[in-house]
Write a protein that binds this DNA or RNA. Sequence first.
DNA 1: CTAGGGTTAG
Length: 740
Amino acid sequence: MGRYELQTGDGRRNNTPPVMRRDYNGGLIAFSRFLSSFATKSCSPESSIHSQFRLLCVACDSSLTTTHTFSPLLRQCIDERSISGLKKIQTQMLKSGFPVELSGSKLVDASLKCGEIGYARQVFDEMRERHIVTWNSLIAYFIKHRRSKEAVELYRLMITNNVLPDEYTLSSVFKAFSDLGLEKEARRSHGLAVILGLEVSNVFVGSALVDMYVKFGKTREAELVLDRVEEKDVVLITALIVGYSQKGEDTEAVKAFQSMLVEKVQPNEYTFASVLISCGNLKDIGNGKLIHGLMIKSGFESPLASQTSLLTMYLRCSLVDDSLRVFKCIEYPNQVTWTSLISGLVQNGREEMALTEFRNMMRDSVKPNSFTLSSALRGCSNLAMFEEGRQVHGIVSKYGFDRDKYAGSGLIDLYGKCGYSDMARLVFDTLSEVDVISFNTMIYSYAQNGFGHEALELFERMINLGMRPNDVTVLSVLLACNNAGLIEEGCAIFDSFRKDKIMLTNDHYACMVDMLGRAGRLEEAEMLINEVINPDLVLWRTLLSACKIHRKVEMAELITRKIFEIAPGDEGTLILMSNLYASTGKWNRVIEMKSEMKEMRLKKNPAMSWVEVDRETHTFMAGDLFLHPNSEKVLETLEELIRKAKDLGYVEDKSCVYQDMEETAKERSLHQHSEKLAIAFAVWRNVGGNIRILKNLRVCVDCHSWIKIVSRVINREIICRDSKRFHHFRDGSCSCGDYW
DNA sequence: CTAGGGTTAG
């Protein structure tokens, strides 16, 4: 009998299993205990089930079993995920005279714990009468595996079978209702919970209800449920805080958190994770830091999700250094943590760092998702980093996000901002699902590249698909019309949306003012501004720049007075006026403007251009010939390009010079504009393919006509992104049609 | 034997 040798609870050696000793005092209990200890002491699970089973058969034959006797063996089967074991137990149970109605609950539970729904369902279906626990177990299983539809179906079946749900049923089934959006049915079950008194008495039911109303977006009703629950706990209150936070009712979230502290309910990692997001949204760094301290004091600073929220909070509050300090303390950042860091850095204008962190993430073999990729792509497109963006595109493909709408709109934005709206369109056409934002991004890409008709066509398609355009859509379409000189189309679209006043913001009006103003319809533009309730600085400045284009000094002076009422000594206005006076030869007034600027300690933004050559970005500043180490070669190339351009008819446009100087000096000044230097550099370095340059200001008339001719001279496309839009120079003309 | 809440995006 060596194989039955075991250590009993009191330490004595015992060579005979209790059942063999026919111990009538508690023999059953002893047998169960024996099986348990056998199960835990066994080294080889395989043999353990087998031997236990043989013992069980002995017990059954001796009629020494209750359903309880099977528990240790069931536990063993669960540990080993042994469905065949469960089936043997069922057979044995039936043989011992236990009907499935009696053993079913345990079997269903064990089977579900083994992850085997099929067998559980089979046992369930065999039962003619089912204990409430059986229903609950199955429903909970479906909820846990996000099979909400099956959960609800089972719940309905339960009701039709006249089985009343209890607190367990209700606390899980509400999640399925919110998941499926079954609000009406959910409310009926809520009513049932009220009738059964479970809404107030059971905090599990209460928090499930709060969570459900929160998911339906009904925070007010969630509040009402919470108020009725008798004994409020962390989970209940946290569910409501989460609701506020996700709905953007951030002030409410912080308030609920504070009252939770007053009620002496201890917040935990979940609570911290959500309330910190609200602090971030509110840019409430005071409460944010306070909560950070509380989190450390309560010992909940280590769970990853709460650390991620902390990181996000600091990033939203633009405290990049603090956020990096938090990040450094995180031992194993996951996908979400990295994504939060990368997107936060991009939002704070730290694109280079964001991309470095993106590479670090890849190095650590943390998989990116569509959130991560769209953030990394936005980092690239903000700086028009084409090569870097191409590499990220490679990663997008590698992880199978080519057809994803989030990563996709990042790619569309990237190609759009790098001047390749055709590549952007290729991405757009492969998306598996498009929504308003995909359309907006694509329309905006066309808009900034001056492809007005394409943008309008897409807009029309969007309407035909029954998609509701939003304010960004309208702005992109208007911008497209503006950049392509499609004034009548733009006015028509604007008028059709004007009835829908909510859609139109100051930005829309600014776009229209720019459009009309540039077309010389200054009075109409001014009438539009007067229509706006609160015309802002940008609107007036837009009209002012139209005055500058058309050299309407008188009107400009009137507008300047208006602007100075809102913003005395506004920098942009002074620069515009100075340039207007310069182009109309009023040099005295130019000096006045400049001295005023000096008084205000304002400095004009230096004009700069960037060009990417061999994956390296080179910077050029207007008039600064010695910024670059190869300035001699650059100048040599530039002179040659100017000479060749002149052969083809280029003449300097001296009205672009806003300084009073000799004519030859004006010419020299024009020759040293930053975009000319950048192009000369790219030509000297013999860039393959297109030349792409980026400017911080708008391209001037002189450079524009020069670049047109140069594109023919070197027989290459030159793409220039200025502060507003793209110009594609090809074979002597520009995509903007000389209208910008 | 069965139950409730969290972090990232265009």
